[in-house]
Computed example of a mutant assay.
Amino acid sequence: MDSYAVFLRGVNVGGINIKMADLREALQTPSFSGVKTLLASGNVVLHSDHGASAVKDEIEACLRKSFGYDAWVVVLPAARVAELIDSCSYPSDDKTTHSYVTLASDPAMLDELFAAGDALHGAQQERLGPEAMAWLAPVGGTLDSPFSKISAKPKFKASTTTRNLRTMIKVRDAATTR
């Protein structure tokens, strides 16, 4: 059985409120075991015999049925999450900046987002792999940062989600312990 990290897009923001206990219960299906939720922002670790694509499809269908919203998730093998974190050169803890990782289920959309960020003067970003990029924002200015505004555009909604690097580390740690 493989370990996966599941990152839900837009949970507990914008009117989509899901209690993590309810999410955990909804995902208790024959396809998944060891389901754990982390924080209140839609982070899940679980085990499955299915591949990442099948896990993604099943979770999105489950969320749509259980919670009645147009759900999108990014699913990565736990080992891949660890690799992405290890490849990030930005600090997980800094007094002046926050490090973020944007994950994508569609690498072409991440290519477009990365190119848009590249066009911003002074944007600090790095590509971590075909499914992830990291970027920096000033403490207290994340939502106002030019890159954050670009990544919030509706065209990226179905395929990308962003997490603080500290959250990614917590997900990695939870996914690698049984």
Rank of each mutant, 00 (worst) to 15 (best):
D49M: 05
T167K: 02
S53R: 15
V101H: 00
V6S: 05
D49E: 12
L113P: 09
K157C: 01
A115M: 11
S89Q: 13
N43V: 08
V35Q: 12
Q124L: 00
I85C: 04
K153R: 15
A54D: 14
D94S: 15
P138R: 15
N43A: 11
P130D: 14
V81A: 00
T161A: 06
R80Q: 14
K149Y: 01
P30N: 13
T160G: 00
G51V: 15
M168W: 03
Y100D: 00
A174W: 07
A104N: 04
S66K: 10
P91M: 01
A21F: 10
L38V: 14
W72G: 03
R178V: 08
V44Q: 06
K95E: 02
Q125G: 13
G68D: 12
M20C: 07
A82D: 09
L165D: 03
E58D: 09
G140V: 06
V81D: 00
K65F: 14
F114C: 02
V74Y: 05
L27W: 11
F114E: 12
S92N: 12
T102N: 06
T162V: 12
T97L: 00
R80F: 10
P154H: 13
A26K: 04
H47W: 06
P107S: 05
V44N: 11
M168T: 10
G122H: 11
S89V: 05
F114K: 05
K155L: 11
D106A: 12
T161E: 02
V11S: 02
E25T: 13
E25W: 06
P154I: 15
L38S: 09
P77D: 11
S3L: 07
G15K: 12
A61H: 09
P30A: 12
W72Q: 10
H47N: 12
V44Y: 05
F147L: 14
L27V: 10
V6A: 02
T97Y: 00
K95D: 08
T96Q: 14
A175P: 06
A174H: 09
S145H: 07
A152D: 04
S92M: 13
M133R: 10
M1Y: 09
L23C: 02
F7C: 06
P154T: 15
R127Y: 09
T160N: 02
T96M: 10
P91F: 02
D106S: 07
L120Y: 05
K36T: 03
R64K: 15
F156G: 00
A61T: 14
